[in-house]
Amino acid sequence: MSQAEFYQRDRERHPPALTPDYKTSVMRSPRAALISLQQSVSEITGPVFGHNDIDPIDNDLIHNYAKGGESAIGERIIVHGRVLDENGRPVPNTLVEAWQANAGGRYRHKKDTYLAPIDPNFGGCGRTMTDENGYYFFRTVKPGAYPWRNWVNNWRPAHIHMSVFGTSFTQRLITQCYFEGDPLIAKCPIVKTIPTQDGIDSLVAALDLNATVPLDSIAYKFDIVLRGRRSTLFENRLEGN
């Protein structure tokens, strides 16, 4: 039974808790330092999901909330990629969940009051399991940009929220997928919470013409990397020797 720990999280890669230009973070960020914990069984384990938990239609956002025969309005896209770990190994059979605004930039949420209309055929969420190679895909419509009150006139770039589990609670991750060529990315205070350009670039899905469905849907590739785990190479050696 392998109980190796996961590599420590590179906190220089992630946004810090306090990012004043994203104003909501100011009063929701802990001031004390995080206490570093060597991983126990509580951290190296995490929930396990199976195909019984979800349905095949769940990853098709164009149809999973549409009335029979109808489909969501907007630019039809495939978002696909692999979930990998930092060792470059695929993470198979892991749950990936996605949510987004509709093509007009409006969320189906009782707290969203943006004036763009709700699309009656679009719920805005999907979920899927990666296959044995860590591969996943969603079919959806490209979300619209929308305004939000941070400064008085900020606009979120088009984005899809992504939630991934991996195999342990330490790998749990929520992030956002942006789209190649969007001029709003460079202006977004939420994007700019990420401290490095390389990190920002890693959240921008690439236009992937090879993966398009001709005469149907355009495609973007979005790989997700979760924390890696110590190699079994060390399992018969003592740490520090």
Binding site: R9, E97, H109, H161, G199, I200
Partner: peptide, 22 residues
């Protein structure tokens, strides 16, 4: 070193319920 780097986190945002608790 040929490790990949972990994907950076982004806030779950105000509409997290759509995805995780519709």
């Amino acid at each position: 070193l040929d490790y990949l780097k972990e994907t950076p986190s982004q806030t779950a945002g105000p509409y997290v319920h759509i995805g995780l608790a519709p």
